[in-house]
Design a protein around this nucleic acid. Sequence first.
DNA 1: GTGATGTGGGAAAGGGCTTTCCGCGAGCCC
DNA 2: GGGCTCGCGGAAAGCCCTTTCCCACATCAC
Lengths: 345, 345
Amino acid sequence: MNDAKPRPATLDDVAREAGVSLATASRSLNGSNRKVAESYRQKVLQAAERLRYTPNLPAQAVARGGSATVSLLVSDIADPYFSSIAAGVARSAGQANLIMTMGMTDRRPEREVQLVRALRGQRPQVIIIAGSRVLDADETPALIEELSAYEEAGGHAVFIGRHDLPFRSVSIDNRGGSKRLAVALADIGYRRFALVMGPSALLTVRDREEGFLEGLTERGINLDPRLLLRRDFTRDGGAHAARELIAGPIQDVDMIFAASDVMAVGAMAELRAGGVRVPDHVGVAGFDDIPNLRDITPSLSTVHLPLEEIGQRAVQLAFAPTDAITSPPPVTADVVLRDSTPGRR
Amino acid sequence: MNDAKPRPATLDDVAREAGVSLATASRSLNGSNRKVAESYRQKVLQAAERLRYTPNLPAQAVARGGSATVSLLVSDIADPYFSSIAAGVARSAGQANLIMTMGMTDRRPEREVQLVRALRGQRPQVIIIAGSRVLDADETPALIEELSAYEEAGGHAVFIGRHDLPFRSVSIDNRGGSKRLAVALADIGYRRFALVMGPSALLTVRDREEGFLEGLTERGINLDPRLLLRRDFTRDGGAHAARELIAGPIQDVDMIFAASDVMAVGAMAELRAGGVRVPDHVGVAGFDDIPNLRDITPSLSTVHLPLEEIGQRAVQLAFAPTDAITSPPPVTADVVLRDSTPGRR
DNA sequence: GTGATGTGGGAAAGGGCTTTCCGCGAGCCC
DNA sequence: GGGCTCGCGGAAAGCCCTTTCCCACATCAC
């Protein structure tokens, strides 16, 4: 028995193997501001290679007082909206040589606070919160306090699409985007709108809804309040709303705007099942421009969001100098009209 | 200036605040096997609350010799296949009170080895590798060595859908699933097949392809080799293949099997653009049963994979006792026939 | 009353790394 | 040529925990 306790090689091992001190080994392997003679450096690098040394990241984190990590909090990573953002974050993190850790809240606000605590324990460089969180949740003060403590300790908290909290945020022009969409739809002839929205406690939903209504108003169109439906902010929520429309006032509608592509797709499926033809009987539009949904039929009019870029921006924003962060321009949200809204005349 | 160096509260602070020793504080907060008098425990818990103490996870990791973490390696988190698996992993990890860290390889094998090294540095409990990796890549030996070292040091490596390596693995019945699909399609009358596959170096692709061919053979059907197309294992790969079919032998085809739903969707979009009607002119089937793609029209026949469950199983498998791991049963892969393959007679 | 047994707090030794600080030899100036 | 700075290796302190080990004290049995 030679290896009673198999354990990864430590920096000590490397130093011994190379015949140098611990300090020199450390300096050689991660380049400090102190120079190391090339001959020593080579010896260390070779020893490390020979021993298949991997630095113990937690140990580095504890010695440096922070870990090379960015933490991302999402509602549901299986949702394409979040997975696209996550891809952007992962990519940027990789470039900055950071590892990404992820928490999933399952859309429960109390999980969110818990997870922030847990993630904070990692002492990450950055915490990015991408859940479209609930406005006025009981947990909000706790969350704010948790994040403030985190920032005081030197971390950076960044929200995505949540400009109402005292933290940096990548703001998304939800409001402007859906306003422009409303105007565009009105301009190609739609008049009788129905809105399929999520819970109004979600800021994202609220912004998209208000923006759309603004756009309608601007074109002199009123929304019948009965035609503002509110369901879960999911595919099934969209389907339920559509079922309700079919059962009742679908005759009075020539255009359905859903708060997200995912909801729009659910609604379209239900409309089809109910014999309502899209876009002949009614047009449908969504929001987000989810890449994987681009191939549905008829192709969905929507507002394009550069989701990956949003993830990347969040990471950049975290490292931006403090004075540059006051008001980063919002991410563009461009209207894309496709086959689901050919227009009415 | 009272707080020259704002830093999170440490366990020392808590102990001092509570008037007990460091040891007692530690024992109170994470319950060791040593008992702590309730009165002391309470004092500690309250002090911790007062100071908003969060344990420094890296420090715990270094003291305990491993971090409460599971690492997941995926090709592309924006791909719904991987994001669904990730959701399962995240969920299971959360239940086990572990934090999930993620690496994205962008489908580059050399990134994979790099990332395994980096993730290994975290000293996670588990490393899950979900990329459908390249067979016989030059990097495979390095990867194996890296993971072996990791396991020797006490970690658990788990592959998803990669049963050819000397590690635990959640195996997916790709072969059986596509064989059954082929048989089912033959049984409803399809005879002239085209296969839209990804690179044959991907084990997943190879299994699906061979399984399908087996099924065809079983029904006495031969595949014209010209009708086996190989493109990128992506949406655009599917589209390219479809374009090629349209340009040539589409007349000889009544059924297109794509190696994944994503490819199938790309192909369908291209067929539609080229004026080939699905399913009237040609049927289309995919593989995976991606939830977000269930609403496309016509609804896609496919082989259902319980992706979230696969993620969960991977975590469970990592913690399973060693003797239970030799051959966990493969995940089921059930054929689901929908509107894209109504049958021929 | 005395020794055996147990209980649980606290001091201290890690655990793997970074970084400060010390000291020594080499090069420099006048 | 003597006093200096400068460059760079190495010893050691420190980061924040966990866990072992010691010990004081209480309980109990006979």
